[in-house]
Design a protein around this nucleic acid. Sequence first.
DNA 1: TATTGTTATACTCTATAACTATA
DNA 2: TATAGTTATAGAGTATAACAATA
Lengths: 144, 144
Amino acid sequence: MSERDLSLKLFVVLTKAHKVIMDRAVKDMKRNGLSAAEFSILELLYHKGKMPLQRVGDTILVSSGGVTYTVDKLEEKGYLCRVSCPEDRRITYAELTEAGKALLDRIFPSHAKKIEALMSALTTEEKQIAILLLKKAGLHAKEH
Amino acid sequence: MSERDLSLKLFVVLTKAHKVIMDRAVKDMKRNGLSAAEFSILELLYHKGKMPLQRVGDTILVSSGGVTYTVDKLEEKGYLCRVSCPEDRRITYAELTEAGKALLDRIFPSHAKKIEALMSALTTEEKQIAILLLKKAGLHAKEH
DNA sequence: TATTGTTATACTCTATAACTATA
DNA sequence: TATAGTTATAGAGTATAACAATA
């Protein structure tokens, strides 16, 4: 198989694996009334603490408009709040509310369990290799 | 890092790599006036020949309603046509038209080149490994 | 001038399920 | 009854770019 065919094959397999895995994960998130983007933001704040909206977008690869859209929804649901930055008044932080923290305390463990089950076809070493390869491929593609 | 954290990490890296790579590939398809789903179907028929609509959906992981929607668009654009099966009149084939074949003759090489460039961070062996791991993970997740 | 974030528009795509025709 | 495909509906999400406020 040529290098080109190998690349096309990888593209197809990546697309399908992502679709199947994401589909299952999203069903899990929806049971808690959250979209994938909503869950990503909550999870990010849960693990990294409050963060400027722009950095949220950079991290989960969503446009500024998209961040506003999703953060609006999460604020309406009471899971996070916007906090303005006193030093630079252009900046707004997103920060989990108590309700947001409580939600993630409740749902994150089962989410993690679900993801672990979805990935359980791979051994520890295989996961480490996959992480390495996907990270390398993703970083490189970003510059194209 | 625990097995669970490793799985979560893999999920995040898979999501991001897919988003970046797909985003670039889609831009390329859009330059030819095609969505990702439209391109997938044309590419499938280009390489595998005419195929029942249901098999199209099974292959690219799209619902029957989604196949109808996308095949309608491709038929409007003149790139494929529906052909009914005489042996089993429930079945409809999708088949490329001459215009569809001509389009893919024209755009497929540069598409393949683009995908190869996007994947060029990985060596031949790394691509083979990534294909294996993603296929294994995807197949397993399908059963959950 | 550059950056942060919001707004507005329009559009594409998806999910869902009911439905028709055929086997 | 089961399968192939269509239709209809509604809604979610996205892209894009113009915009306001601040640095």
